[in-house]
Write a protein that binds this DNA or RNA. Structure first.
Length: 221
DNA sequence: GCGACAG
DNA sequence: ATCTTGTCGC
């Protein structure tokens, strides 16, 4: 698939924040409620700044893999909480561009709206591709929330600066929750239901799990 | 001033 | 993210 380059690469944190503040206005919180080709994305780090980005596209109905792609590169920015997306974006975009199919939904490893400026990795990838996107993070970042009940499907709102920006969601019974937030062209409600639908067994959604596996073992096995 | 801080 | 053993559960 093709991905647009909507902005120049930032030289420092101030420029990166300015890009986030500008692109934030493009985020849409409504969109489709059902999907047929769902992509999971993840990045694996080696040594200091070598990265491998992986994308796995699954058939939403069966959760069977349809296509995979990987790309190797360098972390493109220093790690700064809140600017994390700039590390992985170029390599993730390269992997996406190697896909022959175009997915309907991107499931990203990190936050979307639940971000200090309301523009996490999932929002950034959504805006660059124009595709619906949601974020699933393994740890909370901004806002406050109660602990959801222990059963699969239980959730509580994440409230940041008076706004509900995401949900703490229990995807598996008695297992630490995940933190779901909209990225682009999706509602919080749909992001939550999709995250749950895509997680029939383990803690993390199947697309992200498989992308994680592929990023770690690009050659197979 | 000090600690915390997606991956 | 990554450095790392054993252990518990499916």
């Amino acid at each position: 698939m093709r991905v647009n380059r909507l902005h120049p690469w930032p030289d420092d944190a101030a420029e990166a924040e300015a890009i986030q503040d500008r692109l934030r206005g493009r985020v849409e919180l409504t969109g489709p409620t059902a999907f047929s080709l769902v992509a999971g994305l993840d990045v694996h780090y080696h040594g200091d700044d070598d990265v491998t980005a992986a994308v796995v596209v699954l058939d939403a109905a069966t959760l069977e893999p349809v296509e995979r792609a990987v790309a190797h590169g360098k972390a493109a920015f220093p790690y700064v909480p809140g600017l994390f997306a700039f590390r992985e974006l170029p390599t993730l975009v390269e992997a996406l561009e190697r896909l022959a199919v175009t997915p309907d939904l991107l499931v990203c490893d990190g936050h979307g709206l639940a971000h200090p400026r309301g523009f996490g990795l999932a929002c950034h990838l959504g805006v660059l591709t124009g595709l619906p996107a949601l974020g699933v993070a393994k740890t909370p970042f901004v806002g406050v929330h109660e602990t959801p009940g222990p059963e699969r499907g239980a959730w509580t709102p994440i409230v940041h600066e008076g706004l509900t920006v995401g949900r703490a969601l229990r995807t598996r019974r008695d297992t630490k929750p995940v933190y779901v937030s909209p990225g682009h062209r999706i509602s919080l409600e749909t992001a939550t239901s999709q995250a749950l639908l895509l997680t029939p067994r383990y803690r993390l959604p199947e697309p992200v799990r498989q992308a994680d596996h592929l990023a770690r073992h690009p050659s197979g096995m």
